[in-house]
Amino acid sequence: MKRNERLSVALHALLHMAERGGQPMTSAELATCTDTNPVVIRRTFAGLRERGIVASAKGHGGGWNLARAPESITLGQIQEAIAQRVVAVSLPEESHGCLVERAVGEALDGAVREATRVLDARLDTITLADLLADVRRLDHARKGGAKDDTFLGRSHG
């Protein structure tokens, strides 16, 4: 299983946007935060904009904003908006002439379907606000309880 990189980029960028509290961020700023290219941000955010998770404004002072409160955005919604699963599970192609492989394949397919249902249900319970709270808790512990004005030890120049 491999984690979806588009989802990781989207979550990382969305968390930085949530931390900014409504101040727009350009694709270039988000690309710097996520160590990717601005084009990747724009492509990834297209589905998020269509689903009402983010909004964008052009021109001076424009950029990307969360369109809803972090408490109302779930990981399930984000996964659906980018149209890719959090994890991709691929089973090897079976040999149609072998009954053993066919039986094993059917059992594995059923297990993957069940795991997918469980994962989707769990993702629907985790919000962007939950993740932001976790990041802040980890950042606070990393700093030994010291407060500063940066998110994850980095400023957003």
Results as ranks from 00 to 15, higher is better:
144 G>N: 03
39 V>Q: 09
96 H>V: 12
127 T>P: 01
149 D>T: 11
50 E>P: 04
69 A>S: 15
57 A>N: 06
86 V>Q: 04
38 P>S: 06
105 G>E: 06
65 N>E: 13
55 A>H: 11
77 Q>C: 03
92 P>N: 04
157 G>H: 14
84 Q>Y: 08
75 L>I: 04
11 L>W: 09
92 P>A: 15
125 T>R: 11
105 G>H: 05
3 R>A: 12
92 P>G: 12
49 R>P: 02
135 V>R: 01
138 L>R: 05
102 R>S: 14
15 L>V: 04
141 A>I: 04
120 D>W: 08
83 A>F: 02
143 K>I: 14
95 S>Y: 11
59 G>F: 01
112 V>N: 07
20 R>P: 07
3 R>F: 12
146 A>C: 08
139 D>P: 09
84 Q>S: 04
120 D>A: 01
13 A>V: 04
78 I>A: 00
86 V>A: 06
5 E>H: 08
25 M>F: 08
103 A>H: 13
123 L>R: 06
130 D>A: 08
147 K>N: 04
29 E>G: 08
56 S>C: 02
136 R>N: 07
80 E>T: 14
103 A>K: 01
8 S>F: 01
35 D>T: 10
52 G>H: 06
97 G>E: 13
66 L>N: 01
110 G>S: 14
69 A>G: 15
22 G>V: 06
128 L>G: 12
85 R>A: 14
64 W>Y: 15
21 G>M: 00
123 L>M: 02
10 A>H: 06
38 P>L: 09
47 G>Y: 07
33 C>T: 13
115 A>D: 13
47 G>M: 08
56 S>T: 02
53 I>N: 00
19 E>R: 11
138 L>W: 02
101 E>G: 15
50 E>Y: 02
111 A>T: 03
53 I>C: 00
7 L>N: 11
26 T>H: 04
29 E>R: 03
80 E>D: 09
89 V>L: 08
58 K>T: 11
157 G>L: 14
64 W>Q: 05
43 R>N: 03
127 T>N: 03
28 A>C: 00
135 V>A: 02
104 V>P: 08
111 A>Y: 09
154 R>D: 11
